[in-house]
Design a protein around this nucleic acid. Structure first.
Lengths: 210, 210, 210, 210
DNA sequence: AATGAATGAGCCTTCATTCAT
DNA sequence: CATGAATGAAGGCTCATTCAT
């Protein structure tokens, strides 16, 4: 009996592994060609498969994108969590966790493409409402460490929610400007600007105001 | 000889006119179908031409996008200029001109797509370095009215440049979040957040600090 | 030895049962999606199997169609037999049994598709000559009740065979016209026309001729 | 000026010729592989074209089928008209024109497939309602010569319409039985049966009844 | 200047079937 | 007996672009 279970487990493991192979292939192809240039054919061929075989593991192209995005968001959350670890003061914590978010996308521009893919309109049929909710939740989660600090330095829940959104916006905007080469045009540095914003944010709550 | 020149001029005028016809067609098609859905066929057909004819006026699809973007930026500059007209105080001027930028893209999401098209990778040969420079200059110009106010309320040129970039980033980020539906997820309002940011910006320079 | 035989029998019974399960699934899928829309995947999935499993019970998709057609012909024969039961006079019997045939297909258009599938070319290897013979026999059987009445009202065997074939042809043609929407175009009613034909047929044999 | 017109005409002629080439290729492919087996790729390749080129001449596969069917119906009408030419008596005329219809399809079974393609459901999008009407009209037209005779031998318009429909049904049914090999099974001859039916039809109107 | 014609590569997806395990 | 995996061919169609005329 244990043998049978073991076999089942091994089969499952093998299956998962192959799904991973396709996933990795998709990731690579996407890294190289971008979302528009990543075709099922290319993904299949990169994974060593026939086009049709892909559909055994993923129902559609959109489902692959969903998986890619989900994994990207997990990495994001890890990066954010790791960023805040060594900070000691609340000020450092706030800046570090926010910078964790910023840096993740600054260092991985393709993840930025992925995260804002809806920008060009992912078909609703590809991204189920449930998955969509889950992805949005994980994106939100990535700001949780920052939000916690905001509350700790005296922001009300309403204020915190507002500030986090503004912070996210600021972050996204600077990333976008950098990603599209506008930062050079404006002769500024995205990271510095973002740090400034975070610093100001801290001071708005973290110290006595006049 | 003057006859020849005259003929040349007339021909040039005719040619320009026809280029405009195609341009207008492209604009309409793009408004209706978006960037992905706008094909050379549709544009040609809308302009009353066959697909091949387009290539006498535009070298490629990318070049059309470049022209579209250029025109979009002109409209942007007009919108920003108009926005600041009725403001009397410096505070009102700052907020109005910044809000002019924001609202232009909030109200015309297709122009936002266009502006961020590079995001998904316009082919390099479509946007010549020279055109690219020109477009970036016009984008920069749209922030000039706001920058002027910043200088008037006491910001140094360096500070003004920095703040404008940060403001642009904030603006772009909020627009992006709104455009991709994230604003609803975070239960916030983009315009309000942007106004807040502009207000804070004014207060950082516009009043005595403690 | 008897043990072995018993086991074999039981195995056979189990096998038959599972074949039935697949058959029923095929029938359902075919009813819902039609011949074109019925794929092996759908059939397998409906039966609770993987596609490969089907091939232990049916050699090919065509073989399933053969089985489907066979069962359809059984239902046809039952319908025809039932139709003639309450008729008392020979005239009523003739009309009722012929109408039984007609109505079966008029009421079950999917069976008509099945019966005329060869029309679009069933692969030869799907329908073995032996099965083909059997199916044709059952089709012929469905006209037997009608043929009996013809003989009873005085038709010679040769005449009866001829008339039955003509009747079958008339029936098939009217069904076809109805099924393809031609009846509306010609502004006629298929059932009425068929009844007329049957009535005329009766009168050709059932009464004194001048 | 006449030169320009001539050039336009020649171009049109050339274009028509190429459309014809594709049409002929489609006809051939369809003859060889049937409707299901005739793919755009095969048609294109047979015509010496790339798949995409076809769409310059026909909007879709369904449009090609429409053209094929239209042409088939024209040939049908010609065949029917030709069939009645040498007949002298009304009886001969009736039988000849009806037999013209029958024989056309008996001799060209692929045209039968085409004519009853709706049997398997041509997508409504492929066959515009207007074309559908036209095709049905042409099909109806093919029975006009027969209908005329019916009226001449004393049938009322209502009777004629009814009889024509029944005749069409009889014809279609016998063709179907023959096409699917049932005629052999029933050991009868389709043409003879059809002639019998036509003869009876004539006698029902063409002579005094007792 | 413009057309009409054509290319060729590409798109995502579905299918019946096979076969090692 | 059944699975899970994979094949390979095919499906209709769209696209930006080119080029002879």
């Amino acid at each position: 009996m244990s043998t049978e279970i073991a076999r089942t487990e091994r089969q499952q493991a093998v299956s998962d592994h192959r799904r991973t192979i396709i996933f990795d292939a998709a990731k690579e192809v996407f890294q190289e060609h971008g979302l528009e240039g990543a075709s099922m054919r290319k993904i299949a061929s990169r994974a060593g498969y026939t086009p049709g075989a892909i559909y055994f593991y993923y129902r559609s192209k959109e489902e692959i994108y969903g998986a890619l995005l989900a994994e990207s968001l997990e990495r994001l959350n890890q990066a954010v969590a790791a960023a805040g670890l060594q900070a000691t003061s609340l000020r450092e914590k706030l800046i570090a966790s926010a910078l964790g978010f910023f840096s993740f996308y600054a260092d991985n521009p393709r993840d930025l493409d992925l995260g804002f893919y809806l920008f060009n309109g992912m078909k609703p049929h590809g991204l189920t409402p449930e998955l969509n909710r889950r992805l949005n939740r994980r994106l939100h989660d990535a700001w949780a460490p920052t939000e916690v600090v905001l509350l700790e330095i005296g922001a009300s829940p309403q204020q915190a929610g507002r500030e986090i959104t503004a912070l996210f916006g600021h972050c996204a905007g600077l990333l976008l400007l950098q990603h599209t080469g506008r930062m050079k045009v404006f002769k500024q540095n995205a990271v510095d600007l973002f740090k400034d914003y975070a610093e100001q944010l801290f001071h708005r709550y973290g110290e006595h105001k006049c």
